[in-house]
């Protein structure tokens, strides 16, 4: 029971508390480059999800036999294998989006979230936890991609997943589908995340304060 709980814990931390994008600020390159529409964001998220979970599974399975000195190159070979699989699958299934994502699919190999999870977690933990951790991190990444992609598509084109929201007279915010829009949106979301965290910390402190002060008065 305890093991199962901590497995969910490993998953949940990636989604929110240690979200790879909003808290660790990793994987910025695909984050800013491919989030100009929600569909692109989802496809990128699914590809990364597949690569991260599969690589974590494999690295964790072979963690006993991977020599320490060459571990990074072995991780990269494993990741690259799954990226190639994802690349050809997307090319076969959604060629239009594959073309739009362009170099960013092969570049998943260099995504620091994936390599980071292998080095920091999968190579040291059992297969079960490694997979849970990978699902959490990849889910968090996907959530971040989707959040950014939705905001940028809604404001930049007045659509979500290609469905018009505001009718014909919508005035598109050109900047939102250009690179600066990615930076501005990401910055504002980070701002929101930090604000929520700071508020929570302040509230916890406020709840903790009466206890310490009453204890202090008892001592005096």
């Amino acid at each position: 029971m305890a093991e199962k709980m901590s497995g969910y814990d490993e998953m949940l931390k990636g989604l929110w508390r240690e979200n790879p994008v909003f808290v660790q600020v990793l994987g910025m390159c695909p984050m800013l480059a491919v989030t100009n529409s929600a569909v692109n964001a989802v496809v990128m998220g699914v590809a990364t999800f597949f690569v991260l979970v599969s690589s974590s599974f494999l690295v964790s399975s072979f963690r006993g036999v991977i020599p320490k000195q060459v571990r990074i190159s072995i991780y990269v070979v494993i990741i690259a294998t799954f990226v190639t699989v994802a690349d050809y699958t997307l090319l076969a299934l959604v060629p239009a989006i594959h073309k739009e994502l362009g170099a960013f699919i092969p570049l998943i190999v260099a995504n620091c979230i994936i390599l980071g999870r292998q080095e920091a977690f999968a190579s040291k933990n059992s297969v079960k936890f490694a997979v849970f951790d990978a699902i959490g991190s990849a889910g968090g990444f996907m959530f971040a991609l989707l959040a950014l992609g939705s905001v940028r598509e809604i404001l930049g084109e007045g659509k979500i997943f290609g469905i018009p929201l505001f009718g014909d007279n919508f005035e598109p915010w050109i900047i939102m589908i250009l690179p600066p829009g990615g930076f501005i949106t990401l910055g504002l979301i980070l701002l929101f995340f930090n604000w929520v965290t700071a508020r929570r910390a302040a509230r916890n402190q406020l709840q903790a304060q009466p206890v310490t002060s009453s204890r202090g008065s008892h001592i005096q």
Partner: peptide
């Protein structure tokens, strides 16, 4: 006097 988010007709 265009509506918010809209362009003028």
């Amino acid at each position: 006097l265009a509506m918010p988010l809209m362009q003028s007709a």
